[in-house]
Design a protein around this nucleic acid. Structure first.
Lengths: 254, 254
DNA sequence: ATGGACGTTGCAGAGAATGCAACCGACCTG
DNA sequence: CAGGTCGGTTGCATTCTCTGCAACGTCCAT
């Protein structure tokens, strides 16, 4: 809509790949160096990019701080957090909370496992969207058309032999997940890690977030993990209730 | 430098305070509603802002994902991480890693305490700059003029009775920290929490990051915590060595 | 020295962003 | 149900900002 801003914002994902110098930025944007320079300068003034001592540009600290605030303002996160902690205390495994927003699924909260073997993930990190249990729940709830469109434009990386291979398989899985009201990821992302997940719903019944419990199968088998499902679903329902009861305006994820 | 981009970027911190509608954004920017609308639309297309169901705007998921990548690209973080983990295993308390960048001090990594009582902090969160031990180390290393200028424009919130009260006191403390080569925060941020911190230096001797160990005094007294200082300093020095040895170009924090 | 690569600046022209005003739709209120 | 208000949205003419160019500066390597 606004060319200048559009160009400036396009610089950010580009720098997210790694530091770049002026020429590289200008090239990838398809603009003159002087133009790129002025855009970068403006971004710099706002702390969104940072100029390293070798003159190359990186993403800046302000960006990180902003993102932090963004997450702290998500009220679903605030409501859910104590419940996640309690669940973690009961089961010991890693607990995640994730939301969907226009094509992206992100972890927005996490309570680490008590066991020494931990799953790698990080708050704010985009989720492996085609395999993660939480992603399945969030996408399963989208309107048919949107779900189909999204499934088509996704990549289906084969993390393991049990990863979702393609769009049709994914859509079928989503259908199943939608009907049963919970989801699993059994070694689809990392061979030795299983997850079970349950949806958190708003007052209107739409899924606003999803939570999961993950554990490596050196600690518990998939079957053992599945015995925790009722507890996870109950926790999710409790959060749903609290969330629906409280908020005057509907919030987060359409 | 670029008016349009400048305006667009000014919207982000504004939304970080909380959701806002078009009118509010336009007012605070001092532009016509239609102008604000177009800026917001562009931000939206890039996922930097999100439109809630009540039509108000919030910061978006893409922003969070970008910030995540930004942090993962910091190579000091990568190098330091295993050392932080090891230190955490040895002492049991929470370990932090922080950097300074043009006015902001941020935590960029953290390993949680093994004890049930945990300090609240979060990766990406701006540090309490006037009291945190890591902040003192990072600022103490700035050139005189920059340090003085920064100290002047800071606020000095009195978190506790032992918080740094004003600029002169802060500068004096920084001077002391600079000479002794380590820093503490004894209840200056939260009454019951103490921290000790050590600097991580680049090949040129400049401080590129700082690490700290924090513990509530219900677990260990300040004096007990101080006995860990040699270990913390040794860890920091090890990281410094690895960092200096490895990087061909100087990196992060000027 | 000399060439090249890269960042930076001043300028004039072109194109994009701006503010205005009118429009639309929803929601209250009388 | 009519009338009013409030918020968001659109088309358009004007203006001002952004753009690309070319020249300059600097640093480095040949």
């Amino acid at each position: 809509m606004s060319q200048t801003v559009d160009r400036a914002l396009s610089i950010l994902p580009l720098l997210a790949e790694g530091p770049a110098d002026l020429g590289q930025v200008a090239d990838r944007l398809g603009v003159h160096k002087s133009t790129a320079l002025r855009l970068l300068r403006t971004l710099h003034e706002h702390g969104m990019v940072y100029r390293q001592s070798d003159q190359r540009y990186r993403l800046g600290a302000r960006l990180i701080a902003l993102a932090q605030e963004a997450m702290e303002n998500l009220d679903i996160r605030e409501i859910a957090h104590p419940h996640l902690v309690r669940l973690n205390e009961q089961v010991g495994h890693t607990v995640h909370l994730a939301v969907y927003e226009e094509g992206d699924v992100l972890y927005i909260d996490k309570v680490d496992s008590r066991y020494p073997v931990r799953m790698y993930s990080r708050i704010g990190k985009p989720v492996a969207i085609t395999v993660a249990a939480v992603a399945k729940l969030l996408l399963a709830d989208l309107p048919e058309a949107e779900r189909r469109a999204l499934a088509d434009k996704l990549d289906y990386p084969l993390y393991t032999a049990r990863s979702t291979p393609n769009a049709p398989a994914f859509l079928k899985e989503l259908e199943r997940v939608r009907e049963q009201g919970w989801a699993t990821d059994l070694g689809g992302h990392e061979e030795s890690i299983n997850c079970i997940a349950a949806p958190i719903r708003g007052a209107d019944g739409r899924v606003v977030a999803a939570m999961s419990v993950s554990a490596p199968n050196v600690v518990v088998t998939a079957d053992e993990l599945l015995t925790l499902l009722p507890l996870v679903r109950r926790t999710a329902d409790t959060i749903s209730g609290e969330y629906s009861g409280r908020t005057p305006v509907k919030e987060v994820t359409p």
